[in-house]
Every structure is written in C-alpha cells, then in structure tokens.
C-alpha cells in the first residue's frame, strides 16, 4: 500500500529557560497509508501536537525527517505543504473576521484566487454546513461552530492529507457527532488521508483504521484495534452493577475463589455519575460496581451470577471486550485519562 506519510526517527527536543532539555518526541517512525484514518492516541503532553507539527513543517525536527507524498518536509517543504490541510488544536481563526473572510484569507495563503477561490470557499461552506452564518464574525460563534470553520479552513486546498489535532475538544455531543461523520466523509467521499490526534479512546476506536499509541514522546504500540488488543492478550471484563449487599466480603471472597477469575475489583460507587448528586448533598452509597477479569467473559457469566446469588439485586450486567484503555493500561500501568 502507498504511504501518504512516512516519518523516519523524528525527534524534537525543546530547551527550557534553565537550559534543561524537554524530549517531547523521542524517535517516531511510522507510516500512514493513503486513504486511511490514522489516529495518534495519547494522554495530554504525550507529544501528539509536536509530532504533527513536525510532519506539517511547522517546526523543524531536531532529528529525523518526514515525507509527505514522497516530499521531504525538510528539503521540499513547499511541495509537501501544498498536500497538507491543517486543522490545529486551537481555533486558529481571526476572531474579528467573518467565517468567509477567514476562508478567503487562508485560501490566499495557498495561492488560491479569483473564481477558483470563490468556488472552493462555497464548497467548504456547504460541506461544513456554514451557509447561514458565513457572513458573521467568528467571535460571535459558538464553540462548535468555530470548530467547524476551523476544520473548513483546513480543507480549502483540497489536501491529500488532512491533519486534525483534537478537533472535538470542547464541543457538545451533537457537534462532535457531526465532526466525526465529517472525518468519515473525507475518507470515503474525498479519498483523503486523515491524521487524527486525540486523547479520547472512544474516538480513536470509532474512527481509526489504524492507531498509534503515543506516550512520553514514543510510539508504544501501533496497529488496528484488534491487533493492539490481541498483542497484549488483554482479558474480558464482566462489569456488574449491584445494590450493596450486607455481606460484601463473603461475596467477594467467593468470587475471588473462582479459578477462572484472574482478578476481582469492587468499587463502592456513590459518585460515579454526576446525576447521583443532588445539589450539594451526596446520597449515601447504595450501589457498587463489581468487575471480574477473565479470559472468556461470556462463558463465565452464568457461573458468576450463580455465585452472586438471588439475594443481591443486580442493576446491570455487561461483558466488555478488551479496549484501547486496557491496552494503554497494560503497556504503561497508567490509565489514559490521568
């Protein structure tokens, strides 16, 4: 398969004011195929933005190189940049200009002009569903609208590769859904390659053809979701919400005694969701979550229910297959959300 992006041992070291180095990216080599959605998944500060900033030619790598459609970002920056559409993490728009004026301005920066520019602007405005507000100033827009314009500007030059750096940050669920759908449309209708960064496991899972997990500046795992979970041999989890029984300890001991349960967690859960809180008073804990780790969740389910028995009231039962969260936990010993 053709590579859209090829990075060779990309490294970036920043200097702090006191001249101690920050190794933000420590040798990233990866290859992104044409027409795929590739996610860089990693916690805050992992080096996602720094990596794509080097790929897009914004900052000079301390070492290594990246090739976009075969063009070296160091040697042939101009040609490489022509191929890239940029959607930064921040709302990189002029707030005092209208949506249309922003599109016009950045379109000019890709040497677009006249009819061609106007056509591209109309295209993007339609694609991002911005017709109604196109003549309004950006600073009058809601967060979700701004995000959409922010993405739209990145599509003006009809890029082969579009990078989106956490494009759903601070966006309501509805707008977020739209953005995710947009990403699919870019791949499916326009055959674009998408480089997507996020610290949200769910997004990476839903969107990506392949995922690179990045932590402390290094790619610690790379592949499809199935490949990743397989590789770590992660277990299924039985997640059971129960009304707290009176003899918790007996129940737990019984579960832990089961030979196929590798681990049992018990969490008294009075603050799990915001909606359990009424005003400022916290209702006393009445519910708990039992998590049983095992190789085959479905098979064990019946046995576990038997152990729990009749006297414990069950609110919900779920069998969870291993996910990226588990992969990250397995590889780093930390939760992704920390």
């Amino acid at each position: 398969m053709d590579a859209m992006v090829e990075t060779k041992d990309l490294r970036k070291t920043f200097m702090r004011k006191d001249s101690t180095p920050i190794h933000a990216v420590k040798g990233v080599s990866l290859s992104i195929h044409k027409g795929e959605i590739f996610s860089l998944l990693g916690p805050n500060g992992a080096g996602k933005t720094t990596t794509i900033s080097m790929i897009s030619g914004l900052i000079e790598p301390s070492e290594g190189d990246a090739f976009i459609g075969g063009y070296s970002i160091r040697q042939q920056a101009r040609q490489a940049k022509e191929l890239i559409g940029v959607v930064p993490q921040e709302i990189a728009l002029y707030p005092e200009l209208t949506a249309r004026q922003n599109l016009w301005f950045f379109g000019r920066m890709y040497s677009l002009r006249g009819k061609e520019l106007k056509m591209r602007m109309d295209e993007v405005i339609e694609f991002m569903d911005l017709e109604e507000r196109q003549h309004d100033r950006i600073d009058t827009f809601s967060g979700g609208m701004k995000r959409r314009v922010n993405i739209g500007v990145g599509l003006l030059n009809r890029p082969q590769l579009v990078y989106m750096d956490e494009p759903t940050a601070g966006v309501d669920p509805q707008n977020r859904r739209r953005i995710l759908d947009t990403v699919f449309r870019l791949r499916d209708e326009y055959q674009m390659t998408v480089l997507y960064t996020t610290h949200l496991m769910e997004e990476a899972e839903e969107l990506s053809d392949r995922i690179g997990i990045i932590d402390y500046g290094e790619i610690i795992a790379l592949g499809t979701q199935a490949e990743l979970t397989e590789r770590i041999g992660a277990e299924d989890r039985l997640v059971i919400e129960v009304k707290r029984p009176s003899d918790e300890q007996t129940l737990l001991d019984a579960l832990r005694a089961h030979p196929q349960a590798s681990k049992v967690e018990y969490q008294v859960d009075n603050l799990k969701d915001g909606d359990r809180r009424v005003g400022n008073t916290v209702t006393p804990a009445e519910e708990a979550v039992l998590t049983v780790y095992c190789q085959n969740g479905r098979k064990l389910l019946v046995e576990v229910l038997n152990i729990i028995g009749q006297q414990v009231e069950i609110s919900s039962i779920e069998v969870r297959q291993p996910d990226l969260e588990a992969v990250f936990l397995n590889l780093t010993g930390r939760a992704l959300r920390d």
């Binding site: 914004l58 940049k81 022509e82 002029y94 707030p95 950045f106 920066m109 500007v153």
Partner: peptide, 13 residues
Amino acid sequence: DTWVLQRLLSSPT
C-alpha cells in the same frame, strides 16, 4: 497564542 501564526506557517508561505 491563537495558533493563527502556526496555521500561516504550515501553509506554503
């Protein structure tokens, strides 16, 4: 700070 500069510098300018 608003990344407009970075966006400009990421374009072929």
